[in-house]
Amino acid sequence: MSVATAVSGLTEETVAPDEMPDAVVPRGIALSAALHLVLGSLFIFGLPRLFTPPPLEDMPVAVELVTIAPETRATRPNPNQPRPNAKPEVPTADAPVTKPEPEPPVPTPVPPPSAEAPPPTPEPPKPPEPKPAAPPVLKPPEPKPEPPKPSEKAEAPRPREKPEPPQQMAKNEPKAEQKKYDPGQFETLLKNLAAQSTVPSPDPPPQRPRVASARPSSQPRAPLGSQITASEVDLVRQQIARCWNVPAGARDAKDLVVEVRVAVDPDGTVRQATIVDQGRLSDPFYRAAAESARRAFFNPLCRPLHLPPDKYAIWKDLVVDFSPKDIL
């Protein structure tokens, strides 16, 4: 109240007495009323918000640092969206859909459907074919200790008794009927995925493969998804780097660039990873580096790789260069 009096008093005093005094009074009242209103509303609504800032919420935000490459390509929308009810194609050419086999009696975690053929090595001890499933078929492969292949000639006198020259053990014999790939297993996997989706349909393949596999036929040139952005590449790069255990301390690390050709399934799982330069595998340093690079794709952290699903046509075949030169 005192504030209002002071305001009206001030108004009356400053206004010259002989200049239209009858008009001055209502003006002062209006001004006073407006100020009262402002003050009142300030008291009711304004002040608390003005002077007590809302408490800061200490929420952790997950941030992944990504180096953005200098160039980012924009894409334009895809005019030929695949029809949602388009007939799904067979997931991949090399995975023919067959009837699901009965569940193996021994419960085993589903291994990745990636029984890729090991790269042909020039040496006799070939690694055995990995067998994803079907333990009933798995017979203990008899190791056939071949006639001793001394890796090194025995030298004459020994400080202590030397063990006999090591014999290279026969590898686990790959069975002829052993399939590289168990289509029934993949089928089961797809069934499971389909069961999880809300729409029960007789077409088991999940959405992502369908979109992806529909693309090559319906997308003749430069549609959305024909280009991958630099930041998408960086995301892939980051995932693989996390899965790669660098061979430490190798000599001439700067020359150890390993090129791996990778075939990726629509769900981002690497189906096959092949070391391109097979000729250098006789060099143990290169072989260790190459195998560490290949192992990255089979690291559970990288199964599956998270890739933009609408761009499967681009990343289904990748070439990845591993170079430890900046690390060592």
Partner: peptide, 27 residues
Amino acid sequence: EFRLWDVFAEQQLSGYGYTTTQQNWRR
């Protein structure tokens, strides 16, 4: 006899057999 396996790639990396006297097992 021993075998070394690559768990991720599901491959045998190496396999050798050795024969020696009992007291020489550390080597």
